[in-house]
Design a protein around this nucleic acid. Structure first.
Lengths: 123, 123
DNA sequence: ATTTTAAAACTACCGCTGTAGTTATGAGCA
DNA sequence: TGCTCATAACTACAGCGGTAGTTTTAAAAT
């Protein structure tokens, strides 16, 4: 899997917008984020610039404005983040991690069923 | 559950030592970390000072030297970190998270069995 | 063609992080 | 009692992250 650059908390929020739909001009990205975050438009621009610099997003010049798209896949980023979280917090052991989340977070019984069937297939 | 201060990556490594055994004098902490990390002793001291400042570890003056102990529990820190990870990377949905880890990380079949039985009890 | 305006680009600033050098302090030893 | 040595305390500094102000550019409108 592709090596992805480090992506900060705020940058993730920008990436999520682009993973959901792209390419997008900055104003639409800003708008999409306005819902969730209370950010100055320039803040989003800065984040886009940083993401561009580290090659996490690409820009295409479209006559007067730019269009942004992800250059790294969400799956790769999720993988990278998960790995790092697993190491840092659970010392690399998946089982305690799973037990933690099964235990501490509320799962519907439908979720439980689904999980069980996945585990069954997995075996 | 107690609100814990933000604990950085390197600080976590120090906390792990103290969660495993405490109270400890700085030299033993430094020694314990020497195995895993290639840090200058002063680096560890700085980390301890920062953790002390943010009240994540306490110090007791023991004649000439200090003894350090955690003031926040590992469980609370794990909980806080997990929550933040869940939000950031999986948008708050536990099921995709679980599926990711079941899928992407290698689990022994013993692990799978154990998980299944936990799920069974959980239901 | 000049003015207005939106977006892009550049600059800024503070607090946190990783990493460590430097200085002060106090206790044991000579 | 003065010297030495470990340890604690203070200082440093560059890079990142969150946040946004200022300047430039180029297109649209008059």
């Amino acid at each position: 899997m592709a090596k992805v650059p480090g992506i900060s908390e705020s940058e993730w929020k920008v990436m999520k917008v682009l993973w959901a739909r792209s390419p997008l001009p900055s104003n639409e990205i800003i708008e999409a984020l306005a819902d969730k975050e209370d950010w100055h438009p320039n803040t989003v621009k800065t984040l886009l610039a940083r993401l561009h610099k580290k090659k996490a997003v690409g820009v295409q010049k479209e006559k007067n404005h730019y269009l942004y798209s992800p250059l790294v896949s969400q799956a790769d980023c999720v993988q990278t983040e998960s790995e790092s979280f697993l190491m840092r917090v659970f010392g690399g052991s998946v089982k305690p991690l799973l037990m933690h989340f099964v235990d501490k977070q509320k799962l519907s019984s439908a979720d439980l069923e689904e999980l069980k069937s996945i585990l069954k297939k997995k075996k």
